[in-house]
Simulated scan of single mutants.
Amino acid sequence: MDLDAYVAEHRGEWRRLEALSRRRKPSAAEVDELVLLYQRVATHLSVVRSRTPDPALVAELSRLVLSARATITGAAPVDWRRVPRFLAYDLPLALYRARRWWYATTICFVLAAVAVGAWVISDPAVPRAFGMTDADIAQLVEHDFASYYSEHSAPSFGLLVWTNNAWIAAQCLASGVLLLPVAWFLWQNALNVGIVGGLMVGHGRADVFFGLIAPHGLLELTAIFVAAGVGLRIGWAWVVPGPVLTRGQALAAAMRQGMHGALGLVGVFAVAALLEAFVTPSFLPLLVRDAIGVVVWGAFLAYVLVLGRRAEQGELVLDTAAAGPQG
């Protein structure tokens, strides 16, 4: 087939299809023409692929076909009726099924942070090995740690915290399929928490450290652990898919639930950011601030564990009913 001649013969139809695909409100006649040209160009794409697969032309025709298909089918309307189901079923189920992973993640993180903190307290040379001078340590302990929560306006600070934590969680979720990067991200954060905590506790500022961390940190860190657990569950799905599903099927199923978890954690990080921006630096008594953090954290855990367990039990009941009587 002479490719140049073929392009010259059909270029006018391709241009017309592109023009119609860009119309926001095509008339009835234009819609009929759009459908007809879509079918023709899809055939042209098939011919080019099978006979003279020129990469540039295949890419151009593929773009035209996809654009025309999107115009014909239209965007799916948002079904707000699914929101209650998502909040009451899909999200807690996704997080609950990854619970063993984020339990393990939490334990490993806490042990690593405590070990680093104890190392910093017992050996004053450790911070200096990470490039901190005596002046840096004094500035952190006496000023920087506490002022971090109040030196910016609350709305700006909350947005900054929200985006930063969402970025950390996104890295854990996206790299979970490779498993090891998640461990690296968590180790970096545990190292940071351990060094700062060790310095604060070692210099007699434990009340300031835990008092400022507790209102938002319980929920914030738990959400990061959950994100890491969901990501690790996705990665483990293709390593050990189980006796029924193939590796691809197991990975796809875990990723679908992982997307539910990722979407829900955006809201959780927003709540944690509000706590960090408005509650942590507030003038409320320390016990009140910490109590607010504990209550919100407990409500999140109850939401995931109670509703998630119910959702999983409901699926088991449905699976049993679908299987029918045995024997």
Rank of each mutant, 00 (worst) to 15 (best):
V83L: 13
R49W: 00
V47S: 05
A42M: 11
P53M: 15
A29F: 05
A88S: 11
E30C: 09
V48P: 02
A104H: 05
A56C: 02
L140R: 00
L34N: 07
A113C: 01
G131Q: 13
H44W: 04
F130H: 14
L111N: 01
V114I: 14
L66V: 15
V35G: 05
V78M: 10
P84T: 00
E142S: 12
G117R: 01
L140Y: 12
A135L: 14
S122R: 13
R40G: 05
L37T: 04
V41S: 01
R69L: 10
A113T: 04
L57Y: 10
V110F: 04
E142K: 13
T133S: 14
R81P: 03
W101K: 04
T105V: 15
L111Y: 07
V31L: 15
L36V: 13
V47R: 06
L140P: 02
T52G: 01
A112C: 10
E30R: 04
L87M: 12
P84L: 09
L37A: 09
R69V: 03
W101C: 00
W119N: 08
L64F: 08
R63L: 13
L91V: 08
V58I: 14
T73D: 13
A94S: 13
W80A: 14
I107V: 15
P124I: 03
T73H: 09
D90E: 11
T105H: 04
V116M: 08
R128N: 01
G131W: 07
V31G: 06
V31T: 15
L95M: 07
D123H: 03
A75R: 12
D54W: 00
S67M: 13
R82E: 12
A138Q: 13
T52C: 06
W119I: 09
A94G: 00
L87A: 12
Y89L: 12
I72E: 02
A138M: 04
A42F: 11
P84C: 01
W119L: 15
Y38P: 04
R97N: 08
L45T: 06
P92I: 03
D79P: 01
W102Y: 14
A56W: 02
R49H: 05
Q139L: 15
P127Q: 03
Q39C: 05
L34V: 08
P53L: 06
L111E: 06
T52S: 10
A118F: 01
V41P: 00
A59D: 14
S122V: 04
I121T: 09
R51P: 00
H44R: 11
A129P: 02
V41G: 01
L61Q: 06
Q39L: 12
D123R: 02
D32F: 06
R97A: 03
T106Y: 01
V110A: 08
V110E: 08
I137S: 05
A138I: 13
D54H: 02
T73E: 14
E30F: 09
Q39M: 10
R49T: 13
R85L: 11
R40T: 08
R69M: 09
A75I: 06
S46M: 03
R40S: 10
P124K: 08
G74N: 09
T71I: 03
L140T: 01
D90Y: 11
L34G: 02
